[in-house]
C-alpha cells in the first residue's frame, strides 16, 4: 500500500467520525431542550389509533430473500465488469478484437444468468 492510500482512508474515517459526531451533538442538544414524559399509551406502536393486534415480528414473504440473493449474484458480477471497463482501451490496443469477444462472453453469461431465474418464474412478484 502506498502512503496516499492511507490518506484516502484518513479522509473516509474523518468524514464518518464527523457525521456521527454531528448526530450525537444534535441528539444531546435535543435531550437538553425536549420534554420527556413517557406514558404507557405513548410508547405503544402507532397504528392509526387502533388497539394493536398480533405482533410485527413474524415470518414474512420469502420473496424478499430470493431477490436479495439475486442481487448479491448480479452485484458481484457487475463489480467484475468495472476493471474490464477501466482497462478496455488498453486491452483493445494490445489484444485487438479478442478483447471485445471476451467482454461479450462475460456479458452473455451474465444475460444467461438472468434468463434462468426469469424462466423459472422467480422474477415474478405476486
Amino acid at each position: 500500500m502506498q502512503s496516499w492510500h492511507y490518506a484516502d482512508l484518513v479522509y473516509m474515517y474523518t468524514y464518518i467520525a464527523v457525521g456521527i459526531a454531528f448526530i450525537a451533538v444534535a441528539l444531546g442538544l435535543s435531550r437538553l431542550v425536549a420534554p420527556h414524559h413517557p406514558s404507557k399509551v405513548k410508547n405503544e406502536p402507532y397504528e392509526c389509533g387502533e388497539v394493536i393486534t398480533g405482533q410485527p415480528w413474524i415470518q414474512f414473504n420469502v420473496r424478499y430473500y430470493v431477490f436479495a440473493l439475486l442481487f448479491l449474484i448480479f452485484e458481484v458480477e457487475t463489480v467484475f465488469l468495472y476493471p474490464l471497463a477501466v482497462a478496455y482501451k488498453t486491452l483493445v490496443k494490445t489484444m485487438g478484437i479478442s478483447a471485445f469477444i471476451e467482454m461479450g462472453i462475460f456479458v452473455v453469461v451474465l444475460g444467461l444468468g438472468l434468463v434462468y431465474p426469469w424462466r423459472k418464474g422467480i422474477l415474478k412478484w405476486v
Binding site: 457525521g19 456521527i20 448526530i23 442538544l29 435535543s30 431542550v33 410508547n43
Partner: peptide, 26 residues
C-alpha cells in the same frame, strides 16, 4: 424538531432503533 419529545416505543429493539438514523445519515 429539536424541542420535540424523543419517543422510543416500549417494545422496540432499542439499540437497533438508535443505530438506524446513523446508518442513513452518515
Amino acid at each position: 424538531l429539536i424541542a420535540k419529545e424523543d419517543v422510543i416505543p416500549a417494545k422496540a429493539d432499542k439499540m437497533l432503533f438508535i443505530i438506524a438514523p446513523f446508518l442513513v445519515f452518515v
